[in-house]
Design a protein around this nucleic acid. Structure first.
Lengths: 245, 245
DNA sequence: GCAAAAGTGTTTGATATACACCCATGA
DNA sequence: TCATGGGTGTATATCAAACACTTTTGC
């Protein structure tokens, strides 16, 4: 067979929302290359393993998740000739979305890594900064036209929790009243459980489960460029209007 | 270095619009495996070549294109353990969009392949049917929220040509009058050249060049599922209204 | 009662659709 | 002058943004 041989790895951009901020799971490299530097979790693909299986295995090993209702999808492949000093390594980036862990595990990390707000991540080993950026952008744009935001929520959640996911991922604020109507009127997005939850202060919110819908028609439009520049390209969609403190 | 070694290939989903139909470039395999079967064009990645460089090289070799204003992007990677009987081969699918070639080359193919309407493609070698399906779906959805449709057009084109691209790719009809307003009112999508072109019958249309815009805000919504089922999920956007023959 | 969060109703403005209508050309 | 395609104007329906207002809880 013609062609040169590559080692093939999977790397994971594991995102969650903690304290109303979008966070990524990072590990510290122990062995060369780049010892001591932060990196995305990942590893090599095994003998008879498909890519998604390898990514699932790494996710379980690195987070201690058993099975969970997490989302996992392929992002893309990265294979620049010099990206790994050990030789030719192609890595297939994957995006995983986890609900914000409450309680015991919420300290600061998992079996193998620690959580970092995506805006505060500096240099990463290999080309992992690029993979992270691609993963974050994928997550941001998918919130617009899919129901993927629910993957950041526990099995039962309120409309407010879902809204805070959007606000954390996009870095915007959203009018709670219009958001409420929008998501509850999308068919099969949210299934009411009939239960309510007391969040401390204020009227208890209704609990929902995720419905079967995967697409949002019409999409939930974010301002075209709220995170990169402040250009008034277009009137913001779903912006908070009355500036509550 | 741990990990098993893979051969890495790139495969190309090369799409164009010919005779108002979305067509894909297919080759006939000569050597094993799957000799004689139709397949996507592609080949192995070379020693110090990045993925997009390899895909560009294959595109040039297979279509005879010199440089062109074609679009080329990565689709995703496919690495099922048994996808190639020769051994472990990971292939990185790519999507290329070409303008419909007019004149001499419009016969039926290119240096290495022939054009087939995507709806009439049967069995393909390897897992290429899956890669093709993913490429077509990517193209269809990208027309909604990007200006990518212009990649199917020559450097100068009319609004009608652009509309026929949408109609061919989506398999729908679009009201020419509303389409005209929509695309000409999107900032930086179309640059008027000032010239007009006589297409045979009817009033000559104005010629445009592609502008700098890449995103469409708001998106050009197609009916959620016009190609897979006919469910009246939602009123069609931009549907032809007066049923001209 | 007061603050805070959940949730509803309504006004208003933007936009897409449907379609009448005019323009420019070839036959 | 008729058929054909290019292109503009406009009424209507639809939907989202803005925001007043009510409900239900904790303190």
């Amino acid at each position: 067979m013609r062609g040169n041989l590559f080692a093939v790895a999977v790397d994971l951009v594991v995102l969650t929302v903690r304290d109303d901020r979008l966070c990524v799971l990072l590990t510290q490299r122990s062995a060369p290359p780049f010892p001591g530097e932060p990196a995305l979790p990942g590893g090599f693909v095994r003998q008879r393993e498909d890519l998604l299986d390898a990514a699932t295995r790494e996710l379980v090993e690195d987070t201690g998740l058993t099975v969970g209702r997490h989302h996992l999808e392929q992002l893309g492949s990265y294979a620049a000739p010099d990206r790994d000093p050990r030789g030719r390594v192609l890595t297939v980036g994957h995006l995983a979305l986890l609900p914000g862990l409450a309680g015991e595990e919420s300290g600061s990390g998992t079996a193998i890594g620690t959580w970092h707000p995506v805006g505060e991540v500096g240099h990463l080993a290999f080309d992992h900064a690029r993979i992270l950026a691609d993963g974050v952008e994928r997550a941001r744009s998918k919130l617009e036209y899919t129901t993927l935001a629910a993957s950041f929520c526990p099995p039962e959640f309120t409309v407010s929790q879902l809204r805070r996911v959007y606000e954390a991922v996009w870095g915007t604020t959203i009018d709670p009243r219009n958001f409420q109507r929008k998501v509850t009127s999308t068919p099969d997005f949210l299934l009411p459980t009939g239960e309510k939850v007391r969040t401390g202060r204020g009227r208890p919110g209704q609990l929902f489960q995720r419905g079967k819908a995967t697409a949002l028609h019409p999409p939930m439009l974010r301002d075209p460029a709220p995170l990169t520049n402040g250009g008034p390209v277009r009137v913001a969609a779903l912006r908070n209007g009355d500036g509550r403190p």
